[in-house]
Amino acid sequence: MDWMASIQGLIGGVLIGLAAVWLMASLGRIAGISGIVSGLLLDRPQGDSAWRVAFVAGLVSGPLLLALTGSGLGNVVGQSGAVVGEPVAGVTTMLIAGLLVGVGTGIGSGCTSGHGVCGLARLSPRSLAATLTFMAAAIVTVFVVRHVGG
Protein backbone atom coordinates (compact mmCIF):
# COMPACT_ATOMS: atom_id res chain seq x y z
CA MET A 1 0.00 0.00 0.00
CA ASP A 2 1.25 3.48 -0.88
CA TRP A 3 0.86 5.32 2.43
CA MET A 4 1.97 8.67 1.01
CA ALA A 5 -0.75 8.59 -1.64
CA SER A 6 -3.29 7.64 1.03
CA ILE A 7 -2.20 10.52 3.25
CA GLN A 8 -2.30 12.95 0.32
CA GLY A 9 -5.79 11.74 -0.55
CA LEU A 10 -6.90 12.14 3.06
CA ILE A 11 -5.50 15.67 3.23
CA GLY A 12 -7.16 16.55 -0.09
CA GLY A 13 -10.50 15.20 1.09
CA VAL A 14 -10.30 17.14 4.35
CA LEU A 15 -9.46 20.35 2.45
CA ILE A 16 -12.42 19.83 0.08
CA GLY A 17 -14.69 19.29 3.07
CA LEU A 18 -13.38 22.35 4.87
CA ALA A 19 -13.82 24.49 1.74
CA ALA A 20 -17.41 23.29 1.38
CA VAL A 21 -18.18 23.98 5.06
CA TRP A 22 -16.51 27.39 4.90
CA LEU A 23 -18.50 28.43 1.83
CA MET A 24 -21.75 27.27 3.43
CA ALA A 25 -20.96 28.92 6.78
CA SER A 26 -19.72 32.22 5.36
CA LEU A 27 -22.02 32.75 2.37
CA GLY A 28 -24.74 30.13 2.74
CA ARG A 29 -23.76 28.68 -0.65
CA ILE A 30 -23.29 25.11 -1.84
CA ALA A 31 -19.81 24.30 -3.18
CA GLY A 32 -21.05 22.82 -6.45
CA ILE A 33 -18.44 23.57 -9.09
CA SER A 34 -20.80 23.46 -12.07
CA GLY A 35 -23.21 25.87 -10.38
CA ILE A 36 -20.42 28.22 -9.35
CA VAL A 37 -18.91 28.31 -12.84
CA SER A 38 -22.25 28.58 -14.66
CA GLY A 39 -23.28 31.37 -12.32
CA LEU A 40 -20.05 33.15 -13.12
CA LEU A 41 -20.34 32.70 -16.88
CA LEU A 42 -24.07 32.79 -17.50
CA ASP A 43 -26.19 34.20 -14.69
CA ARG A 44 -24.08 37.17 -13.58
CA PRO A 45 -26.20 38.43 -10.65
CA GLN A 46 -25.10 41.81 -9.31
CA GLY A 47 -22.47 41.57 -6.59
CA ASP A 48 -22.26 37.78 -6.83
CA SER A 49 -19.14 37.40 -8.94
CA ALA A 50 -16.29 38.06 -6.47
CA TRP A 51 -16.68 34.89 -4.42
CA ARG A 52 -17.19 32.80 -7.56
CA VAL A 53 -13.97 34.17 -9.10
CA ALA A 54 -12.10 33.54 -5.83
CA PHE A 55 -13.41 29.97 -5.64
CA VAL A 56 -12.45 29.14 -9.25
CA ALA A 57 -9.07 30.85 -8.79
CA GLY A 58 -8.47 28.63 -5.77
CA LEU A 59 -9.31 25.51 -7.78
CA VAL A 60 -6.84 26.46 -10.48
CA SER A 61 -4.10 27.93 -8.31
CA GLY A 62 -3.64 24.91 -6.04
CA PRO A 63 -2.33 22.54 -8.73
CA LEU A 64 -0.37 25.37 -10.37
CA LEU A 65 1.32 26.19 -7.06
CA LEU A 66 2.30 22.54 -6.59
CA ALA A 67 3.71 22.38 -10.12
CA LEU A 68 5.63 25.66 -9.73
CA THR A 69 7.18 24.59 -6.42
CA GLY A 70 8.36 21.35 -7.96
CA SER A 71 6.04 19.24 -5.82
CA GLY A 72 4.38 17.81 -8.92
CA LEU A 73 0.73 17.01 -9.24
CA GLY A 74 0.93 13.45 -7.97
CA ASN A 75 0.93 10.30 -9.99
CA VAL A 76 -2.33 10.81 -11.85
CA VAL A 77 -1.55 8.50 -14.75
CA GLY A 78 -0.47 5.34 -12.96
CA GLN A 79 3.06 5.37 -14.38
CA SER A 80 6.03 5.67 -12.11
CA GLY A 81 7.54 9.15 -12.34
CA ALA A 82 4.80 10.52 -14.58
CA VAL A 83 2.85 13.59 -13.57
CA VAL A 84 0.33 14.11 -16.32
CA GLY A 85 0.23 11.71 -19.22
CA GLU A 86 -0.80 12.13 -22.81
CA PRO A 87 -4.52 12.65 -23.36
CA VAL A 88 -6.32 9.39 -23.96
CA ALA A 89 -8.52 10.99 -26.61
CA GLY A 90 -8.38 13.79 -29.14
CA VAL A 91 -9.54 17.35 -28.60
CA THR A 92 -12.87 16.70 -30.34
CA THR A 93 -13.65 13.76 -28.07
CA MET A 94 -12.71 15.76 -25.00
CA LEU A 95 -14.89 18.70 -26.09
CA ILE A 96 -17.86 16.40 -26.66
CA ALA A 97 -17.26 14.70 -23.30
CA GLY A 98 -17.07 18.09 -21.57
CA LEU A 99 -20.29 19.24 -23.19
CA LEU A 100 -22.03 16.00 -22.16
CA VAL A 101 -20.86 16.49 -18.58
CA GLY A 102 -22.18 20.07 -18.69
CA VAL A 103 -25.55 18.92 -20.03
CA GLY A 104 -25.66 16.19 -17.38
CA THR A 105 -24.99 18.60 -14.55
CA GLY A 106 -27.75 20.82 -15.90
CA ILE A 107 -30.22 17.93 -16.07
CA GLY A 108 -29.16 16.68 -12.64
CA SER A 109 -29.28 20.17 -11.15
CA GLY A 110 -25.75 19.80 -9.87
CA CYS A 111 -22.45 18.00 -10.11
CA THR A 112 -20.47 15.52 -8.06
CA SER A 113 -19.21 18.22 -5.72
CA GLY A 114 -22.63 19.75 -5.14
CA HIS A 115 -24.49 16.47 -4.74
CA GLY A 116 -21.73 14.08 -3.67
CA VAL A 117 -19.92 16.28 -1.17
CA CYS A 118 -22.44 18.85 -0.01
CA GLY A 119 -25.74 17.08 -0.67
CA LEU A 120 -24.76 13.81 0.98
CA ALA A 121 -23.40 15.72 3.98
CA ARG A 122 -26.85 17.33 4.31
CA LEU A 123 -28.49 13.87 4.01
CA SER A 124 -30.38 14.94 0.88
CA PRO A 125 -32.26 12.00 -0.71
CA ARG A 126 -32.10 13.76 -4.09
CA SER A 127 -28.32 14.06 -3.82
CA LEU A 128 -28.05 10.39 -2.86
CA ALA A 129 -29.98 9.44 -6.00
CA ALA A 130 -27.84 11.77 -8.13
CA THR A 131 -24.57 10.48 -6.66
CA LEU A 132 -25.60 6.84 -7.17
CA THR A 133 -26.46 7.72 -10.78
CA PHE A 134 -23.08 9.43 -11.30
CA MET A 135 -21.26 6.43 -9.85
CA ALA A 136 -23.25 3.89 -11.88
CA ALA A 137 -22.58 5.85 -15.08
CA ALA A 138 -18.85 6.05 -14.25
CA ILE A 139 -18.64 2.32 -13.53
CA VAL A 140 -20.42 1.43 -16.77
CA THR A 141 -18.27 3.87 -18.75
CA VAL A 142 -15.01 2.46 -17.37
CA PHE A 143 -16.18 -1.11 -18.01
CA VAL A 144 -17.17 -0.34 -21.61
CA VAL A 145 -14.00 1.60 -22.38
CA ARG A 146 -11.64 -0.94 -20.81
CA HIS A 147 -13.34 -4.23 -21.59
CA VAL A 148 -15.76 -3.78 -24.47
CA GLY A 149 -14.24 -0.98 -26.52
CA GLY A 150 -10.72 -2.32 -26.26
Rank of each mutant, 00 (worst) to 15 (best):
D2E: 10
D2H: 10
W3V: 14
A5E: 06
A5Q: 09
Q8Y: 06
Q8H: 09
I11H: 00
G12Q: 01
G13Y: 04
G13I: 08
V14H: 01
A19L: 12
V21N: 09
L23N: 04
L23E: 04
M24F: 09
A25F: 00
G28L: 05
I30D: 01
A31K: 04
A31P: 12
A31V: 08
I33K: 01
S34E: 05
S34F: 05
G35N: 08
I36T: 15
I36G: 01
S38M: 11
G39F: 00
G39P: 03
G39D: 04
L40Q: 05
L40E: 00
L41C: 13
G47D: 11
A50T: 10
A50R: 10
W51I: 08
V53I: 14
F55K: 01
F55S: 10
L59R: 00
V60D: 03
S61R: 02
G62H: 06
L64D: 07
A67Y: 10
A67K: 12
A67Q: 13
G70Y: 01
S71T: 10
G72P: 06
L73G: 09
V76S: 10
V77K: 02
Q79I: 14
S80W: 02
G81L: 07
V84E: 02
P87G: 09
P87V: 06
A89H: 10
M94R: 13
L95W: 10
L95Y: 08
L100W: 02
L100E: 04
G102C: 09
G102H: 05
G102E: 05
V103R: 00
G104F: 01
T105C: 13
G108P: 01
S109D: 12
S109L: 11
T112N: 14
S113G: 11
S113I: 08
G114I: 08
G116S: 07
L120H: 06
A121T: 13
L123H: 12
S124T: 08
R126G: 13
A129E: 02
A129F: 07
A130E: 01
A130Y: 02
L132E: 03
T133C: 12
F134P: 07
F134Q: 03
M135L: 15
M135A: 14
V140L: 14
T141M: 08
F143V: 15
V144L: 15
R146G: 07
R146A: 15
V148K: 06
G150S: 13
